[in-house]
Computed example of a mutant assay.
Amino acid sequence: MEFLKQYLDIFVFGLLGLMSFVMVWFVIERYLFFARISLADYDHPDTLNIALTAHLTTIASIGANAPYIGLLGTVLGILITFYDLGQGGNIEPATIMLGLALALKATAMGLVVAIPAILFYNALLRKVDVITERWKRLQRS
């Protein structure tokens, strides 16, 4: 239990930090790709779709799973708080509230990672639709 108590925050916040770094990296890569795309290079809609949607699944997965990573950190933090209370017998409300408040920070951080990821994913998906329609219009002319 001491190992978990000592490294829980490092693990949860490290994983969420890695997820946010990957998300930001892929978002920037996608926007740069969309800015430089040459629609004339694509002769089939499937080839265009594969190129446009690269990395979008990763961004969506980060947005969908970051809250769960945060929730896992919260649940384990609450478990540690109750374990410490059981071991020490100290049932002061201030001690319990401090432990619970510290545990909830993991959920908050998970949401801080997830919300922008979902917003960027939706914006990029809209951009894919717009570029695909531009390509279709180019093919008709």
Rank of each mutant, 00 (worst) to 15 (best):
F34H: 08
G86A: 10
M23W: 01
T58L: 05
R126L: 03
F34S: 00
K5N: 15
L16R: 07
L15K: 00
V22D: 01
L56H: 04
V128G: 10
D9A: 14
A60V: 09
Q87V: 07
I91S: 10
L4H: 05
K5V: 06
P45V: 02
Y7Q: 06
L15A: 08
L111H: 07
S61T: 11
V128Y: 09
W135C: 09
A60Q: 15
T132F: 13
L56Y: 05
L48K: 00
V12N: 05
K5Y: 11
I59K: 01
A101E: 14
L76M: 14
K5E: 11
V22N: 02
L79R: 12
L16N: 03
F26L: 05
R140N: 13
L71C: 04
Q87N: 15
M23N: 06
A64K: 11
T74S: 13
S20Y: 05
A94P: 06
A108H: 03
G86P: 08
R126M: 10
Y7F: 10
S61N: 13
I78S: 11
I69Y: 05
F82D: 04
Q139K: 12
G14Q: 07
T132R: 15
T47Y: 00
L98V: 11
F21A: 09
S61G: 05
V130I: 09
I50V: 06
A60G: 06
T58F: 03
M97H: 15
Y31Q: 13
L100H: 14
V128R: 10
N90F: 10
A123M: 13
V22M: 00
A54I: 02
K136E: 12
L18S: 04
D84K: 15
L52M: 04
A106R: 01
L98R: 15
P45C: 06
L104W: 06
A114C: 07
N49P: 01
V113D: 03
W25V: 00
